[in-house]
């Protein structure tokens, strides 16, 4: 606890209209856009550089991934509801929605693990070919981001929620920022799903 007094942690800056953490989170998301941009750029270059590229539908489980897409979208709704619960001053409802978000995130990962396991059983690995390399790497990195989000949400569900008692505005702001990250992860999947599975 050696911090000097830093303004605009819980209240918005009078000119920019945002708190420090909100601006910081959006900056972080901007860098994530560039990270996945690099990966999508790799996909574009590799795909346009080859004559043959398999249809995602032939090689991947589209129904399962569609379910997963709906799982992630639902988790986005529960995430934003957990923040809204805090704005409406209900810690218990926050806990309910945040718990649901975590469960849905875990469900997403379980389905992914099932998908990967199925591929490995059939001796289909990243090294099998460029399509699989792209599929495993892009969904793998996305999956790691989902895992990271789950861990952050777990922290905010249990130990981090102590802040609600001493500084509810700051805690609500933190959940809003955690929500921004979670929605971004959903956003990436919204593009990843059609690009890899449907085209």
């Amino acid at each position: 606890m050696s911090t000097a007094v830093i303004p605009y942690i819980s209240e918005s800056h009078p000119v920019t209209g945002v708190t420090n953490s909100k601006l910081g989170t959006w900056c972080f998301l901007a860098s994530e856009v560039m990270l996945f941009g690099g990966l999508f750029s790799a996909y574009v270059l590799l795909r346009t550089g080859t004559l043959e590229w398999p249809h995602g539908k032939e090689l991947l489980n589209v129904p399962l991934a569609t379910v997963n897409t709906l799982v992630l979208i639902t988790s986005s709704v529960t995430m934003v509801m957990s923040w809204a619960s805090l704005v409406m001053k209900s810690l218990s409802r926050y806990r309910f929605f945040m718990g649901l978000t975590i469960l849905l995130g875990l469900a997403f990962l379980v389905v992914k693990a099932f998908e990967y396991g199925h591929k490995f059983q059939h001796h289909l690995f990243p090294s099998t070919g460029t399509f699989y390399a792209v599929y495993f790497t892009l969904t793998g990195l996305h999956g790691l981001h989902v895992l990271g989000g789950i861990l952050v949400n777990l922290y905010f569900l249990v130990p981090g929620s102590r802040l609600w008692r001493t500084n509810p505005e700051q805690f609500t702001g933190r959940i809003e920022c955690a929500g921004l990250y979670w929605h971004f992860v959903d956003l990436v999947w919204i593009f990843l799903f059609p690009v890899l599975y449907l085209l």
């Binding site: 994530e32 560039m34 990270l35 941009g37 790799a42």
Partner: peptide
Amino acid sequence: LLLAFPPLMAAAVL
């Protein structure tokens, strides 16, 4: 640094 480094991160992963 914010916007240019991530593509190298992507490349390093690849």
